[in-house]
Amino acid sequence: MTNDPDLAPDCRVLEAFVFRIGLFLLTNLAVVIIASLTLNILGVGSYLDESGAGLNLTSLLIFCAVFGFSGSLVSLFISKWMAKRSTGTEVIERPSTPQEHWLVETVAELAQKAGIDMPEVGVFPAQQANAFATGRNKNAALVAVSQGMLDRFSQQEIRAVLGHEIGHVANGDMVTLALVQGVVNTFVMFFARIIGHTVDRVVFKTERGHGLGYYIATFVAEIILAFLANMIVAWFSRKREFRADYAGATLVSPAAMIDALRRLQAETQQQVPNQMPDTLTAFGITSGFSSKLMAAFATHPPLAERIRVLQAL
């Protein structure tokens, strides 16, 4: 690691890039290993029928489900470790400042109210006001806030944001979203392979096995179907945000939750980009500025709408 302050930012960028590439490769290797072992246990080999001319839809569905759920479940189980590394979150093991003491005590109080085990508490070095919760289950979670939020928000506003994140944990949103993603992955793979098989037979006239047309058509179909499927996942994610806002209002107070969202709204209008990795955006208090054209793919409802819903309670 270099001590030159002018080179340090470049080194951090390179470190982050190498980490993401390594994580991508390791995650996919884990998925392939787990899926292959599971398919062997289930006795599922080829999803072509015995003649090699048609598809065995049962075998194909099992194949797609194993790979579809393996990816989302592996991501779920490493979510805390991945979050800490990708955001630079420092977990507060032993509070050493009044701010850290207050943060840990507040999370402990809200977790007790919500009926969950004490999560790990951390701070990540982003100037964007944000927070997130993640973990493989509600009793093994991580709740973290950005340094920017700690610097600029009042304690009552931060309490409300922490209540929102504890709400995500108590509602089991991390597990539920992983399962939804697994279902979506399964059917994207399933229908893409049916489309690829049909194109290979009808257009490329392949009679047995699979030719080049199958792989090209399947690849294109997966891209298109995954693009459309992301709208379903995003819609579900937006619904979770209303429930988490309600949890923040219940655990702290509606007024504090509304004030926190208004403060976020004021900062978001400055069009500050989201500084969290895409894998964690859905679990943040806000996704940052996003264009109206991409509303169908947004993981969070507009802050103005969230405020209106709370005001109507």
Results as ranks from 00 to 15, higher is better:
residue 74 V to L: 13
residue 168 H to C: 10
residue 183 V to D: 04
residue 79 S to N: 09
residue 294 M to H: 12
residue 112 Q to G: 09
residue 119 P to R: 00
residue 74 V to K: 01
residue 184 V to T: 06
residue 237 S to V: 07
residue 219 F to G: 14
residue 116 I to T: 03
residue 12 R to N: 12
residue 91 V to D: 04
residue 211 G to E: 05
residue 293 L to T: 10
residue 229 A to R: 09
residue 91 V to S: 04
residue 91 V to N: 01
residue 67 F to T: 01
residue 176 T to V: 08
residue 243 R to G: 03
residue 266 A to F: 07
residue 139 N to K: 03
residue 172 G to A: 08
residue 241 E to N: 09
residue 175 V to K: 13
residue 235 W to L: 04
residue 310 L to N: 04
residue 255 A to T: 13
residue 140 A to R: 15
residue 146 S to Y: 02
residue 63 F to E: 03
residue 66 V to G: 01
residue 141 A to N: 11
residue 127 Q to Y: 06
residue 31 V to S: 02
residue 286 T to V: 15
residue 303 L to T: 08
residue 177 L to R: 07
residue 76 L to Q: 03
residue 272 V to K: 15
residue 258 I to S: 01
residue 135 G to R: 07
residue 262 R to Y: 07
residue 147 Q to N: 14
residue 64 C to W: 06
residue 147 Q to K: 14
residue 167 G to Q: 00
residue 281 T to W: 04
residue 265 Q to F: 10
residue 166 I to R: 01
residue 196 G to W: 07
residue 17 F to S: 14
residue 31 V to T: 07
residue 247 A to G: 04
residue 141 A to T: 11
residue 7 L to R: 15
residue 13 V to H: 06
residue 27 T to L: 11
residue 302 P to I: 06
residue 282 A to H: 12
residue 291 S to M: 13
residue 197 H to W: 14
residue 93 E to F: 11
residue 5 P to H: 09
residue 233 V to K: 10
residue 303 L to I: 14
residue 92 I to T: 07
residue 168 H to G: 10
residue 296 A to P: 00
residue 145 V to Y: 00
residue 258 I to G: 00
residue 86 S to G: 07
residue 250 T to S: 13
residue 103 L to K: 05
residue 137 N to S: 12
residue 87 T to D: 12
residue 313 L to T: 10
residue 171 N to E: 05
residue 213 G to Q: 07
residue 222 E to K: 13
residue 239 K to F: 08
residue 68 G to A: 09
residue 249 A to D: 04
residue 29 L to Y: 08
residue 30 A to P: 10
residue 11 C to I: 12
residue 261 L to K: 01
residue 2 T to P: 05
residue 49 D to L: 06
residue 4 D to R: 08
residue 273 P to N: 11
residue 155 Q to G: 14
residue 257 M to F: 05
residue 76 L to K: 03
residue 195 I to P: 01
residue 58 T to I: 13
residue 277 P to Q: 13
residue 19 F to T: 14
residue 124 F to D: 08
residue 311 Q to I: 03
residue 154 S to W: 01
residue 201 R to H: 08
residue 68 G to C: 07
residue 17 F to P: 00
residue 187 F to R: 01
residue 89 T to N: 11
residue 238 R to Q: 13
residue 176 T to K: 15
residue 273 P to V: 11
residue 246 Y to C: 06
residue 173 D to P: 05
residue 311 Q to G: 11
residue 208 R to G: 00
residue 39 L to G: 02
residue 157 E to P: 02
residue 37 L to M: 15
residue 111 A to H: 08
residue 141 A to W: 11
residue 8 A to C: 01
